[in-house]
């Protein structure tokens, strides 16, 4: 029953022109929501929240670092769900959306790595620490890049998408294993480093900006995904009548 609903829903939305209309309407709202959330979040993060007694102001970096890290992983989960749907039911829209998750996820992984490294400089005294989380993130970045590269290397985009979807699912199985192995490896090789957020040691006053930024980042992911998927759809269908119609309808 629920499977059928999903399938029918995607088929209905999956018609290219209707997805085009849907995304054109929805994406600006998501961008606006992101702008609102991030303005509030950044305001709280930089002006309202008091400095940490241990890390002083450097912990404010975490308000961009942590939501990006969460989104980098959540983005992979979203991509895997879309990829599974694409492989099982061969729905083109989910193929495209799964593929378009990769560059956005990679962007968040990159933010996470860069800000983590910047945070580490004052805290650990080094730009790079073989910390379990940073190392797994680095590996995740390469998985994202691999998916993007694989998709880009095919001329037949539908074939490329399906092949890359297999890789997405292989990655899904592998990421927990990689994470576990890296954690195991770092605990064997080094002493404890400062935890980015200690176990539930975060004061409740530090929470609001984190929540706002997290919501904002999620909205942004959705908006960017819709925009990219819409472009990909236009590119793939550029010979078709519905795209021609859009071209001639628009006066600009």
């Amino acid at each position: 029953m629920i499977w059928k609903t999903i399938k029918v829903g995607f088929h209905r939305l999956g018609s290219a022109p209707s997805f085009y209309r849907f995304s054109t309407v929805v994406s600006p709202w998501l961008w606006a929501g992101f702008a609102l959330c991030s303005v509030i979040g950044v305001y709280y993060a930089l002006y309202v929240v008091p400095p940490d007694y241990q890390q002083s102001d450097s912990f404010r970096i975490l308000y961009v670092h942590v939501p990006s890290a969460w989104q980098a992983m959540a983005g992979y989960v979203v991509m895997s769900i879309l990829a599974a749907i694409a492989l099982i039911w061969r729905i083109r829209l989910t193929e495209i959306m799964a593929m378009m998750c990769a560059p956005i996820g990679a962007a968040f992984t990159a933010i996470c790595l860069a800000t983590g490294s910047i945070w580490g400089r004052p805290m650990w005294g080094t730009w790079w620490e073989w910390d379990a989380r940073l190392t797994s993130m680095l590996v995740l970045l390469f998985i994202y890049l691999g998916i993007m590269g694989l998709y880009a290397a095919f001329d037949d985009k539908r074939k490329g998408a399906r092949v890359a979807c297999i890789l997405v699912l292989v990655g899904l199985v592998n990421i927990p294993i990689i994470h576990f192995s890296v954690e195991w490896w770092t605990t064997l090789h080094q002493g404890k480093t400062i935890r980015i957020f200690g176990e539930s040691s975060m004061h409740y006053s530090m929470m609001p900006p984190l929540i706002w930024m997290t919501i904002g980042v999620k909205l942004m992911f959705g908006a960017a995904l819709l925009d990219r998927a819409r472009n990909e759809l236009l590119t793939q269908d550029r010979r078709k009548g519905w795209v021609r119609k859009i071209l001639s309808n628009k006066g600009d």
Binding site: L46, D57, V64, A110, I111
Partner: peptide, 17 residues
Amino acid sequence: LEYAVYVWSSYGIFAVV
């Protein structure tokens, strides 16, 4: 802020991306 350079460059990277 203390560590101002680090904080601002992090937010800067986020904004650019």
